[in-house]
Computed example of a mutant assay.
Amino acid sequence: MNTNAQIGQVLKDLRDERGWSLRELGLVVGMNKTYLGDVELGKRNPTINSLEKIVAGYGLTLKEFFARMPD
């Protein structure tokens, strides 16, 4: 699995844990649901600023997020 796919999977897992739709996440973080869906699918490579904004919506820091990444 490539890095974009791994990042996307962790983001999807976080969203699923909260029971949020892409629309709900988009409202929380102020981003388009289509963009967020593409990031989750590994089709888009988020900037570090975008990723930080998304993970902050889950109440996490980037350090905490990357600690969830598979080895």
Rank of each mutant, 00 (worst) to 15 (best):
M1D: 02
M1Q: 09
N2G: 13
N2A: 12
N2P: 02
N4E: 13
N4R: 13
N4K: 15
A5Q: 14
Q6F: 10
Q6S: 11
Q6L: 15
I7K: 05
I7P: 00
I7V: 09
I7S: 05
G8K: 04
G8Q: 12
Q9G: 08
Q9C: 05
Q9T: 04
L11A: 03
L11D: 01
L11I: 06
K12E: 11
D13W: 09
L14R: 03
L14F: 02
R15W: 00
D16V: 08
D16R: 15
E17V: 04
E17P: 02
E17C: 09
R18S: 07
R18G: 02
R18E: 01
G19Y: 11
W20E: 04
L22Q: 03
R23D: 14
E24F: 03
E24Q: 15
L25R: 06
L25C: 07
L25T: 05
L27T: 12
L27N: 12
L27Y: 12
V28F: 11
V29F: 12
V29E: 09
G30L: 07
G30I: 05
G30T: 07
G30F: 08
M31P: 05
M31W: 04
K33P: 15
K33G: 11
K33T: 14
T34Y: 15
T34M: 08
Y35T: 04
Y35E: 08
L36A: 07
L36H: 09
G37L: 05
G37T: 09
G37V: 06
D38R: 14
D38S: 12
D38G: 10
D38N: 15
D38A: 13
V39F: 00
V39Y: 01
V39T: 01
V39K: 06
E40I: 10
E40G: 07
E40Q: 06
L41C: 13
G42N: 13
G42E: 02
R44W: 11
R44K: 15
N45H: 15
N45R: 13
N45A: 11
P46M: 03
T47M: 09
T47S: 08
T47L: 12
I48L: 15
N49P: 13
N49M: 14
S50Q: 09
S50V: 08
E52M: 10
E52G: 12
E52V: 11
E52D: 15
K53S: 03
K53Y: 05
I54D: 01
I54V: 04
I54K: 00
I54Q: 02
V55F: 01
V55T: 01
V55L: 00
A56C: 09
A56V: 07
G57S: 00
G57E: 07
Y58W: 12
Y58T: 00
Y58A: 04
G59V: 03
G59W: 00
L60A: 00
L60H: 00
L60Q: 02
T61F: 05
T61Y: 01
T61Q: 11
T61A: 06
K63W: 10
K63V: 09
E64G: 02
E64S: 08
F65A: 01
F65H: 00
F65R: 01
F66G: 04
F66L: 11
A67I: 06
A67V: 08
A67N: 10
A67C: 08
A67P: 06
R68C: 03
M69T: 04
M69E: 07
M69Y: 02
M69D: 03
P70F: 11
P70M: 15
